[in-house]
Design a protein around this nucleic acid. Structure first.
Lengths: 316, 316
DNA sequence: TTATTTAATAAATAATATCAATAGCTTTTA
DNA sequence: TAAAAGCTATTGATATTATTTATTAAATAA
């Protein structure tokens, strides 16, 4: 049994196809076939049920794959140890970012980071929270930036910053007269919100993953940008909420429409998250310190109230 | 990097000597040298400091060895998974047993066990508790039988039975008249005890690892058998305590010297212990059920008071 | 039926793990 | 201080093994 064989098994288990797995592992298909056969022979079991299309794992195969993931993961950590010793921070690093953070945060730290750590090949992908969690767990992402807390025991979180929400209230809106607004002022029915990361609860409002409003609303925005929301609001379709960093991009003549919340302002917690196995921890640390350093100057709110992205409607 | 290379590194790290490590891994010394060199080259670090005699691990080498142990351990678990699937219970299994349990327990279950699981090659070694713990941690033993609780977080325990202590009091002894004795009757000064597993505490007596008495006593028994103790007691040198199973071997004419304790009788807890990594769990389960089954009939005491083998003299 | 997809097999080749023999170095012994 | 012993590295030969290209076999889809 070799680590290479285990890698091949994992590739086939993932792609359910020897040919594709061969591509992904940069060898030819017969190599994969033979090595996996050899392993099956050595252990005297069948890992894959080749009679099924697409190919399936056998019962033992399934257990073996779980353990193989462990082993391969742990073996990759050897390189980590060496890198740490050398003070080397580099290599490929896959970072996921949720859509509502991507456009504002990325420009703030990316230049900084690649200048400071030129040997890290950052691959950034925009993904929603659900996809991020999935990919952190299966190892396709090394880390991600998302709204937290997620309360997933296999994912660790390092808080980057707390970002308050700011009301964008066009002059036609009933609340426009108020200088500062309050959570209790909000009314679901005239709020334009993006799906992601907007969970107001505390018995007052809770929009988190409640599909309820979909039926009642005249329209829905599955995804999209805050820019769109602002335009819709300007058209008199209601008010909206913007994460603080997004308000920095608002046109001057629209700035008067921004209304801060009375403290404690509702805010989202934004964290760097990663698999509990803590692979590539040096790079994660580097990212964390870079981002935290850059953001520190940009957000100076004191008193905020975290809105959990995972909060569910209370049943009682 | 291969699992084989990691095994070689572990062997050298353990024996601090390439030649010896080569023997233990059943390859020649050049094979070891080259493979380790190759790994060092691949990672571009030095694992061993060859200038020191005997050879030493470098700083990275040390960290690498820790991780290598993980990987090798986890890789061995693949075979476990396969064995479990097949319902196969076999292979080499190294069991440690403390001296005071060895002669009484082993004959009770060994025959039974090897008949039931003929494919398991049991290698049994008599070792004291300290050596057992060490070897369970470094993987030289698969499991052991010892007095518990050990309170070691890296070692798991499965209780096999509770074995009461019985007083052996020769006719010349002051306590010989009492039918049943009490812990409070005991006096350290006229007690003959083996080092292992005799920890009476609770504010009354505590002999556990206290070397105090060594200086005061006229003689000491570092190890030895209970048979010897009984003879010494017969010579009028004092009384002794025997674990219940040992009393079954006492000669008929000496049986009258056995005095049970008032309930709750002091007793030792005897457990099957193993590394928390839980390798070869099928065999451990098999051992546990076999021994527990055999002992169930032999010990029928109800009300016992466990004497911890790790208990220290209370300082207050 | 004929393409098409996909995994297994065969034969050749490249890579590599291992070994026996020995060299080179250091430490120990006489 | 020279000789012996103990250790690891090196060398060159050999056996093993991983990988590749080309092809076959089997199952699916058109």
């Amino acid at each position: 049994m070799t680590i290479t064989q285990l890698r091949y098994v994992l590739a086939v288990a993932e792609h359910k196809n020897f040919t594709k797995a061969a591509e992904k592992t940069f060898v030819t298909q017969p190599t994969l076939s033979m090595q996996i056969q050899k392993l099956e022979e050595e252990l005297d079991i069948l890992i894959f049920d080749r009679s099924k299309k697409p190919i399936e794992l056998t019962e033992v195969g399934n257990k073996l794959v779980q353990q193989a993931k462990n082993i391969v993961n742990e073996s990759e950590r050897i390189q980590d140890i060496v890198d740490q010793q050398k003070g080397f921070i580099g290599g490929e690093f896959k970072l996921g970012v949720i859509p509502t953070i991507m456009p504002t945060l990325l420009p703030m730290f990316l230049n900084n980071f690649i200048k400071k750590y030129p040997k890290v090949k950052l691959k950034i992908e925009e993904l929603n929270t659900e996809a991020i969690i999935e990919r952190l767990l299966d190892g396709h992402l090394d880390a991600a930036i998302a709204a937290t807390p997620l309360e997933n025991e296999n994912i660790k979180e390092r808080v980057l910053y707390y970002e308050p929400f700011v009301g964008y209230i066009p002059s036609t809106h009933r609340l426009n007269q108020k200088k500062k607004i309050d959570i209790t002022d909000l009314d679901i029915d005239d709020m334009l919100l993006l799906e992601d990361g907007h969970c107001f609860r505390d018995g007052i409002i809770n929009l988190c993953k409640t599909k309820k409003s979909y039926e009642e609303d005249h329209f829905q925005l599955e995804s999209g940008s805050f820019e769109t929301l602002v335009k819709l609001a300007n058209e008199g379709l209601g008010m909206t909420l913007l994460p603080y960093l997004h308000t920095l991009d608002i046109k001057n003549d629209e700035k008067s429409n921004l209304h801060y919340f009375n403290e404690p302002s509702p805010a989202r917690e934004v964290s760097l998250i990663f698999n509990k196995s803590e692979l590539k921890m040096q790079i994660i640390d580097a990212l964390h310190s870079t981002i935290a350093g850059v953001v520190k100057g940009a957000i100076t709110f004191q008193n905020v109230k975290i809105i959990s992205p995972m909060a569910k409607v209370k049943s009682d």
